[in-house]
Nucleic acid binder design. Sequence first.
DNA 1: CTTGTTAGTGTCGTATGGTCACTTAATTCA
DNA 2: TGAATTAAGTGACCATACGACACTAACAAG
Lengths: 238, 238
Amino acid sequence: MDEKSFLAAYDKHQFDAPLTSVDSVLFSYHQECLKLLLVQRSNHPEQGKWGLPGGFVDLQVDQSLEDTARRILRAKTAIDPPYLEQLQTFGNGSRDKRGWSVTVCYSAMMAYQSCEPHVSSVADVQWVNIDKLDQLPLAFDHGDIIAHARERLKQKALYSIVPAYALPELFTLPELQHLHELIIGKPLQKKSFRRRIEQAELLIDTGEKVSQKSGRPASLYRMKDRAGSFTFVRNLEE
Amino acid sequence: MDEKSFLAAYDKHQFDAPLTSVDSVLFSYHQECLKLLLVQRSNHPEQGKWGLPGGFVDLQVDQSLEDTARRILRAKTAIDPPYLEQLQTFGNGSRDKRGWSVTVCYSAMMAYQSCEPHVSSVADVQWVNIDKLDQLPLAFDHGDIIAHARERLKQKALYSIVPAYALPELFTLPELQHLHELIIGKPLQKKSFRRRIEQAELLIDTGEKVSQKSGRPASLYRMKDRAGSFTFVRNLEE
DNA sequence: CTTGTTAGTGTCGTATGGTCACTTAATTCA
DNA sequence: TGAATTAAGTGACCATACGACACTAACAAG
C-alpha cells in the first residue's frame, strides 16, 4: 500500500486517545503583589472551582499549540501577552475524571494595567494574589502546575530579567527588584541587582522620573528588545 | 445536572482532537562520539525514514506520559534510562500528514554499553553519530526536535554534569570532559572543569585506575546521588 | 634511561556578585 | 526656610569562581 491510500483509509479514532488541552499560568504584578489569573469553571467536571485559563485545541482555527494558548488568553484578557513560553506538559490517567488527559502548559506574563479593565468586566475571571491561592478551591492538578510555574519563574529571576514582562512598558528599577524579590522569596542586594543590568545594557533610561510617596524619585526604564532573552553567566544568590 | 450524570453522559470524541504521541531523544557516548538512537519507520506515513523512538500512549498500560516514554525506550534498548526529562511538546496542523498532531518529547541518556547488545540485535534500531545525522532521511519534524534537544543539552553541559548519564557507571574525568566538549562544541579548560566538580563534591573517586593506550592512567569515578540535579552558580564559557 | 603521551596540579589574573556605607533628591513638618 | 525623613542611586572593598597556562606525575615504548 502506498502512502496516499494509507492516508485515505486512516482512521484517527482507531486508537483510544487521551484528551488534550492547553492551559496557561499567567503572572502579573500589581500593588506590590505577584498575581495570577484564574478562571471559575462553569462546566463539569470541577464546576465552580478555580482553574488556569485553558481549553481544547481548535483544529480549524489554531495553527499550533502556542496559537491555542494565545487565543484562550486573548479571550480572557483582550491582550496578546508579551511573554509566552511553554512550561511543561502534564499527562496521566487520573488528573481528570473524564479519563486519561494531557495538558500542555504555558507560562505567560503581562502588565496588570494593560488588561485590568477587561478582566474586571468579566465575572468568572479574577487576578488572585499568589499568597492567597490556598484560600481558593483549585480544579484538577492546577495547584501542582502553578507550583511548577513558580519554580521555573524563580530560576528565571535568578539569571534573567524575564519578570519585567509582568510590568508596564515603563517601570523603575526598585519595582523590578521588588518583583524579583517576591518571586525568589528573599531580599536582594540593590547594588548587585542594578550592576548586572547596567553592565549588560538591558534597559533604556527614558530620563523620566516618577515621584514616590516620599523620598527621591526613581528613573523610568524600558526594556531593550534583546533584554528578554539575555541570560547572565552567573546566578544571584538564592 | 450533577457531576456524576455529566461524566456518565460524557463523550470524549464529541470534539475532534489532535493525535497525541510521545517521542524521546536518547543520547549516548561511544568511541569519542556523541550518539543518538534512531528507529526506521516500518509503517506509513514517512515509511522507511528514520525517526525518534516514540509512539502513542497506551491508556490501559501507561499511568503517565513518562511511563509511555519509558515503555517505548525499554522496548528498543531493554534498559530503563537512568536520565529521562521532559523536553518540549511540539504540536501543529502540518507536522504529520494524518492531521493535527501533538508530540510530547523527552530527552534521555544512557550508557552505550548497557544496551548495545540488544540494540545491535534489532534491525530497525541504530545508534547514529550526531555528525552524520544529515546523511539520514529523518521523518516528520524530528530534525527540529533533535536540534532543540541538543541546544538544551548544551545548556545543561554548561551548568551541570548531567551528561555523565551518557557514560557507564564508572568513568574518567577526561572522558566526561570530552563528552562535554562534544556537546558544547568547543574545548574546555581542564582545570576549570575539574575544579568545579571537585569543589561541589559531585563524584566519588573509586581509587581504580584505567590505563590508556599511552600516558598516565586516569582515575575512575562514580556519580554521587545528588550530582545529577546539582547546578553550578556560574556557567562555563560557551 | 630517555622520550612521548596523557592525567592531574599550582598559581595568578580577571570578572562578577555580596556587603555596606555613603551621597542625592525628593517630601514633610516644624 | 531649613532640619528630619525617606527612598533612589553610587563608591569601594572583599570573596568567589572561572580562564589561562605552565608545571609535575605516571605510565608505555624503544
